[in-house]
């Protein structure tokens, strides 16, 4: 396998950054997320980022169009992101799978979300295989291979002192080629390091099917009790795609339409004009979140909308853990 020494990571990143925008997981002000690469940034590949790379394609807030207000001859002016190429470096299997979930939502079923598509189309994803599992990680339980993901354009493997790299797509091959041209690659026959057994494991097999008959199950009467509807889980989740469309007036005549992350945990999310809310209490909101991830999404798109990244488990202030929910569903008596 082609490989480069870990000691030369900065040179590798510099080489890639010289070709276009390069996003790397880094620590800035103690926040571990993806940032555009700079020589002075503290790149951190030790563990997965606290904030997933979803915000690169689907920012928490983005302007979608300008408008001139009604009353005068109003008009609309589209605001699209630049169609520039970028490379995402170090994306883990869980987050790669999450990007495929987002692709399903934003790029299929009759309509394309142009904002997501514009960013996504220009991106080359260089995935990074995990050699150890975090305490909250359970991707292997959700059917993923922590070491590699076939959806990536190129795959990095942990070879100990080296990172092995393989191109998977034309875009990925270009990354490998750029590193080869820069003289950074050599051949390595070292073994790929793989994680030891995951601390956190759950049996997700058949959960989507079982949940079909569990909408009215008494399980939901208890699960919601500790939830405080803070929405942290949905914001940190790499697959949560719900958004609100709102607007901001610049002055009496003009304004801007804004798309921003929304959460099924919030009351306004499904509240209709006139006050009717089909999911009025915490019970319905919590049920919606887990049913969406484990039942509705699989029914619609053929895959779980949970990739086992563990962020919601790590950050939930009341320890309402999806792995625990999966276990409870598994143990639940249907018709109970």
């Amino acid at each position: 396998m082609k490989a480069f020494p870990k000691a030369k990571l900065q040179e590798v990143l510099k080489t890639l950054a010289s070709k276009g925008t390069l996003y790397v997981p880094a620590l800035v002000d103690e926040t571990h997320r993806y940032y555009p690469y700079r020589a002075d940034i503290q790149v951190s590949l030790e563990q997965n980022s606290a904030i997933s790379p979803k915000e690169i394609f689907f920012p928490s807030t983005e302007k979608i169009y300008n408008f001139t207000a009604y009353g005068i001859d109003g008009d609309y002016e589209e605001i699209l992101p630049d169609r520039t190429a970028c490379v995402l470096f170090g994306v883990r299997s869980c987050d790669m799978q999450a990007i495929l979930c987002m692709d399903d939502v934003f790029l299929t079923r009759g309509y394309i979300d142009e904002y997501y598509a514009t960013r996504r189309e220009g991106a080359t994803i260089v995935a990074l295989g995990c050699s150890k599992a975090g305490a909250d990680c359970f991707c292997s339980s959700m059917g993923l291979n922590p070491v590699e993901h076939e959806g990536a354009d190129a795959q990095l493997y942990d070879l100990g002192d080296y990172y092995g790299i393989q191109g998977r797509t034309e875009k990925g091959e270009k990354v490998v080629e750029a590193l080869a041209v820069a003289g950074l690659l050599s051949e390595s026959s070292a073994e790929v390091l793989v994680p030891e057994e995951f601390v956190l494991q759950v049996d997700s097999e058949g959960i989507a099917e079982k949940l079909q008959a569990m909408f009215e199950h008494s399980l939901w009467d208890q699960l919601w009790r500790k939830c405080i509807n803070c929405g942290t889980c949905t914001y940190l989740c790499p697959t949560c795609h719900c958004f609100d469309i709102s607007e901001k007036k610049k002055n009496q005549h003009c304004g801007v339409k804004i798309k921003c992350w929304d959460s099924c945990m919030f009351n306004e999310y499904a509240m209709m004009a006139g006050g009717h809310n089909p999911r009025p209490s915490k019970k319905e909101k919590v049920r919606q979140r887990f049913m969406h991830k484990l039942r509705y999404f699989p029914e619609r798109y053929g895959k779980y909308q949970c990739t086992g990244c563990g962020r919601c488990i790590a950050k939930c202030p009341v320890n309402l853990e999806i792995t625990d929910v999966i276990n409870q569903v598994r143990e639940a008596k249907v018709n109970g």
């Binding site: 009759g110 719900c242 929304d262 099924c264 499904a270 509240m271 969406h292 509705y296």
Partner: peptide, 24 residues
């Protein structure tokens, strides 16, 4: 059926009833 809608194109999430999006 009526649900709150924002995008109208099955992306923004809120109008689902089960796995159906009412807008789509």
């Amino acid at each position: 059926l009526e649900m709150r809608m924002k995008c109208g194109i099955g992306k923004c999430g809120r109008c689902n009833i089960g796995s159906c999006y009412i807008c789509l």
